[in-house]
Amino acid sequence: MRSHLRPAVVVLVVMTALTGIAYPLALTGLAGLLFPDQAAGSLLHRNGQVVGSALIGQSFTAARYFHPRPSATTATDPNDASKTVPAPYKADNSSGSNLGPTAKALADRVRDDIAHLRAENPDAHPPGDRLPADLLTTSASGLDPHISPAAAAFQIPRVAKAWHLADDAVAALVAAHTEEPLLGLLGERRVNVLTLNLALDAAAK
């Protein structure tokens, strides 16, 4: 055993220096040089202020904005540090709901959200009168920046009404912000909620 001690110490120290210090630091330098925007978090600016990241969803509740998916992220309860309270799109505490398919809490939540969505969107007429699944399910990270095109279409009448715009005008904006699968193969059709809402704000000015 003792004969292993010197190689073990030397290899661990050298490898720590290489893989734990030199490698991440060199990459930080290279990334900042080659891809400074991405390395810093793909931040979006408006009037010189950071308003979000193109990759991270944020909470929207106003009628004039498209709403993201429900989020299961939480924050520490200010009144009791051992408990948590819902805090959607809390981007420093990512989490899914981790509710199983037979969880009563899941069915209860979806039932409430369906009533809520119908009340919020009285003019929406989804196919078969069924609500888009992504507006009723929480994402894995709680920070999903996207919704499906169907979930965007569902919200168009509400958003258009709030801005006093024609449905078609908002639909055109949604279409322009719909991203396609890479090479027609990888990934899903999707709409980035934050960049779409930024475009709405800009169009209204």
Binding site: S97, L99, P101, I114, A140, S148, A150, R190
Partner: peptide, 17 residues
Amino acid sequence: LGMDGSLGNMEGKEIRF
């Protein structure tokens, strides 16, 4: 309960995947 089923089981999944 009235959810559209065509996307599949999306609880705990991300749209981009």
